[in-house]
Design a protein around this nucleic acid. Sequence first.
DNA 1: CCTTAATTAAGAATGGTTCTAATATAGTTT
DNA 2: AAACTATATTAGAACCATTCTTAATTAAGG
Lengths: 134, 134
Amino acid sequence: MLDQLKSVLQEHKLKATNQRLTLLEYMMSHDTHPTAEMIHNDLPDISLATVYNTLEKFVNAKLVVVIEGISDGKRHYDAASHPHYHVINTQTNEIIDAANFDPAPLIKAAEAATGLQITEYRIDLYGIKPNAND
Amino acid sequence: MLDQLKSVLQEHKLKATNQRLTLLEYMMSHDTHPTAEMIHNDLPDISLATVYNTLEKFVNAKLVVVIEGISDGKRHYDAASHPHYHVINTQTNEIIDAANFDPAPLIKAAEAATGLQITEYRIDLYGIKPNAND
DNA sequence: CCTTAATTAAGAATGGTTCTAATATAGTTT
DNA sequence: AAACTATATTAGAACCATTCTTAATTAAGG
């Protein structure tokens, strides 16, 4: 189980340090979409700089995805264990995972329109609670 | 033509100041996805603070959309004249508009999955030039 | 015109993120 | 298993895009 995490890191050519194992375990066991600061609060023995450095490595390795555009102005992070997109409740800033959308038609349309080869996508939807009184 | 811009602002309950007319005209005639700083460079008589304030008003009024997640770390802005999404060339940071995707199935799926009423969406795709030697 | 609430603007302040440079460690080699 | 080396970690400083402050200006309606 710890060996499994070690293998994941090695597959991505990342040195299996204690900090990275701890952070990977943390990300894979939380679906709370934390910020770097929230992670550092939960894991105070890992410096904030290392949280940022490691998250960047994880994002490059596609182990983690970034969620931007939340009205708190901070980046949120999410384990990229399965393809999915995010729905953000703009009244509460709650971030909800969703995975019931097939991106293939979107990607094909974009490749046809631009001539590029799509390597990554980000789909964020913003919504409100129906019948909510504002 | 200037009266048309004035009407647009008034429809959104925004005072038709010279700065806002100039900025709206600028946004609607440029498809260059500028940052606030780029706009201020092109329109130096409008203060940077006003560029930011006005863009925020325009975004709230859905006259302009924000493009985040570009690797230069800055927000880019785009006139929201028609529903569309963006494709970002990660090798050059070029931002390409695309409008050949119907978001209705995506929105329906998200509403079914979350129970929220979707009010806004952001779709950003990242790609590279095919056959490009890195 | 007058009034007033909203807007503009210059610069200061903020704060999330990145950088620096010194120390420690993982992974590999003898 | 000791030595080597490239990489990782860290505390704190620095950065800089964005937001805030506050005083002067202005649009819109009476």
